[in-house]
Every structure is written in structure tokens, then in C-alpha cells.
Simulated assay, not measured.
Amino acid sequence: MSDLTLLAAVSAGMLGLLVGSFVNVVVHRVPAGLSVVRPRSSCPSCGGLVRERDNIPVLSWVLLRGRCRDCRAPISARYPAVEAGTALLFALVATRAPGLPEVLAILAVTGAGVALALIDLEHGRLPFAVTGWAGGLALAALASGWISTGVDSGPGAAWDRAVPALLGAVTWLTVYAAVWASTRGRGMGLGDVALAPVLGLVLGAVGPAQSLTGLALGFLTGAAVGAVLLTTRRAGRRTAIAFGPFMLLGAALGLLAGPAVAEAYLRTVGLA
């Protein structure tokens, strides 16, 4: 790993700690229809406002020994776990993008993705507000790169850079919309369909192998886990299983290992 790559990973990880703290707020408030800005965070047991010094990601939880400063009520370990997990994801994905616009787009979707996965697992839905903000930020970041390329190298070069991302978005949207329509919404909601082009956009901006592999792995991991649940009788054929986390897992795997997985598959079928 080069010094520049290491610096990018560390910087992204530090940013991920802060974003992870905000993700905890989003996961708690958005499903309840509350503002993510106001009021300030408070202890659910005693109502005491969280002090600034107690709002440092991970470290504050450790120093407080997992308890509220005022009433000593336990604070769930999920909070530092989400912060640390988001930081780790940020550090990993930041090294997989070809340029700064792609890095910013991927990080925006990664932060939102952590929140969406947790909300879907707990509430069985993917809020359009979170998906919309992620998509808007990702598109803005990528568009800034396309515009910069156009200024430096002409509209043709900008178009060449934009097409893979747009094709990724269209491909993912087409597949998920077709599945949703063919199953009449059973097993997949419109929240999944709305998330699909956002994931396709950022993966397509990195490369077609990442986009197509991520798309396939989402369905494969979902099918594998579903088969295990059916076999172990932990779920029935009519049991609702949140699919958003599998979409996001597939996208993450596609980003981190897409080319290697695609090459292995092509070798297996004799096309490489």
C-alpha cells in the first residue's frame, strides 16, 4: 500500500467515525419521523442532554463505560459498533475509487447504506429520504468530475467518463424494476427499486466489473441466506426478509472484489 493510499484510507476512516455517529441519529429518528437536526441527542432513560465531550465517536462510550453520565443507564454497544464499522467501511472503499469525485460519491452512499441496512433490518423498509439524499450527493460529486473533465479535455472526454456511471444506474434500475413488476411487489419493495440506481451509479463510475458483479452478488447472497433460513426452518416461504442489506452487501463486495470475482467466473465458464 502506497503512502498516498494509506493517507486516503486513514482520512476516510476518521471521517467515517463522524459519519457513523450521525448514522446512529438517522437510524433512530428517521423511522420515527423525527428531525435529524433538532433537538440535541439525549438519554432515553433520564432525558439528560448528551454533553459535547460525551459525543466523541467510540471513545466517549469507552470512557463512560457504556453508561449515561447522569443516570448511569446502559448505552447500547450498537452505537460504538456502528461508528467503528462505518469508519472501517470508509477506509476500505476510499481506496477503490479512481478519483476524488468517485471517492466522495462512494462515501456518501456508504454512509447512507449503513443507515439503510440497519433501518431495513429493524423496520423492514428503506426510507426514500435517506436514499434520495445519498443519490443526490453521489450524483453531485460525480457530475463535478464530469464537468471538470469537460473543461480540461472537452465534452467527449466528459461523456466517456459519465456513460459508465449512467449505464450502471440504468442497468440496476431496469433489473430491480423488472423483478418488482414480475413479482407484483412480493419480496421486494419500491424502496429497493429506488436504491438500485444509486448503487448502480456509483459502482458504474468505478467500472463495469464492479457494477455487474455487485448486482449479481446481491441476488446470490440473498438467495443463499434465504435457502439457509428455509432449510433450518427459521423462515417460511411467506416470511418477509429485508432485501436491502443484501443489495448493499452485494454492492460492497462488487466494489471491493468485483474484478477478481468477474475474472474467476469467466475462467470457470471458459471465457478467460
Rank of each mutant, 00 (worst) to 15 (best):
T149P: 04
G150Y: 02
G150F: 13
V151K: 14
D152E: 09
D152A: 12
D152F: 04
S153R: 01
S153M: 08
S153F: 12
S153L: 13
S153N: 03
G154K: 06
G154R: 02
G154S: 08
G154F: 04
P155H: 14
G156L: 13
A158T: 03
W159S: 04
D160K: 04
D160E: 14
R161P: 02
A162M: 14
V163H: 14
P164K: 09
P164Y: 07
P164E: 08
P164R: 12
P164W: 14
A165R: 01
A165L: 01
A165E: 00
L166R: 11
L166Y: 01
L167A: 02
L167G: 05
L167S: 10
G168S: 09
G168Y: 06
A169D: 09
A169S: 11
A169N: 06
V170A: 14
T171P: 14
W172M: 05
L173F: 12
Y176W: 09
Y176H: 11
A177N: 06
A177C: 05
A178Y: 02
A178N: 03
W180R: 13
A181S: 07
S182K: 09
T183L: 05
R184M: 08
R186I: 15
G187N: 02
G187H: 05
G187R: 00
M188E: 10
M188A: 06
L190P: 00
D192T: 01
D192V: 01
V193P: 01
V193Q: 11
V193I: 07
V193Y: 13
V193M: 07
A194I: 07
A194V: 10
L195A: 11
P197D: 02
V198E: 03
V198L: 10
L199E: 00
L199H: 04
L201P: 03
L201G: 05
V202A: 07
V202R: 08
V202C: 12
L203K: 08
L203I: 06
G204H: 04
A205R: 05
V206G: 12
V206Q: 04
G207I: 06
P208M: 02
A209H: 10
A209K: 14
Q210A: 15
Q210L: 08
S211F: 05
L212I: 01
L212D: 07
T213G: 14
T213W: 09
L215C: 13
L215N: 09
L217Y: 13
L217S: 14
L217F: 14
G218L: 03
